[in-house]
Amino acid sequence: MNKVALSASALLMGIAVTAIAQETPAPSLDGGYGLGRTALPEEIAAWDIDVRPDGLGLPVGSGDVWTGEELFVDYCSACHGDFGEAVGRWPVLAGGFGTLEGEDPVKTIGSYWPYLSTVWDYVHRAMPYGSAQSLDDDQVYAIVAYLLYLNEVVEDDFTLSNENFTDVVMPNQDGFFPDDRAEVEFPLFIQDPCMTDCAESVEITMRAAVLDVTPDTAEDDGAAEQPTAVVEEAAAEASGPDPELLAAGQDVFRRCSTCHQIGEGAVNRAGPVLNGIYMATAGTREGFRYSSVMSDAGAGGLVWNDENLSAYLADPRGFLSGNRMAFQGLRSDEEIAAVIAYIRATGAE
């Protein structure tokens, strides 16, 4: 024991010595350093968008369930499904009631989230994914109203507004309590542990190799490197389109890449793969679930030529009302030309 105590105290001395070198804090200055400038009210208004459970931060506005449903199908369903049931591994937003104590808890807005303000704040600040803060306040109220309806908190004739917002009580509001590890766990874990003959025998009870869910490292490398390689190849083609235009298109495509993949190894995600999309018939990518209007447009002969692609990218909703692409549209003709050039070059089949 002596040896242990000795080495422990030597160690503590070591810490103390290091600490002296490290711990001289940066000094405060009476009255401050006079750095920075006063924030203007307009600047604070532009950035201070957070909302609290007591309603602080909520703007004036309102939206009803039916308006919310239309918006949700347009802007949210590509990832979250028409009814909040989710596509792939994107978050499930509705249902899951009574599952929190089970083996497979489904934590949705209805089954888990304690406060409605969290939904409003998050939809407003971060959604639609890849086009954050593009919804106006009434649209956010409407989508939140629809999410309440999907979670059976309100009826279908409900209108949510800043007036009635704090009246809404979420089902799992009382499902949370403050961290109590100090009371519950410290007494169990702050103890001298056994060092010798601590068990009669030890057996293996579970093995990770049996599950086989660990990524294969060699394949991973290939997949990760592919998109860059494809882009570089496309950009390096001497006889192909203008490299500057392609580079600009690649830059614009970052806005598309939240939902669309292109190039070798691309797979359908929230949006279909774009390989070979130029001059293809609309709504025909195998394995992708299109909106009925997109499938119908393809059946009616819509082909993605320059003219149609340009019009669609400029105003997706205006070009084909009711389609699922949750994108505002590209503002400039230059951006559209660049991204089409990029899609043609990179997605050539």
Partner: peptide
């Protein structure tokens, strides 16, 4: 003057226990 209870401290980063209740503000 009070916490905001935003997404990453309610729907995420809360620790669901067996009884269906969840610890929150488990920072350390």
């Amino acid at each position: 003057d009070q916490p905001w209870h935003h997404r990453e401290e309610t729907s995420k980063y809360t620790d669901l226990l067996e009884n269906g209740q969840a610890r929150r503000f488990t920072w350390e």
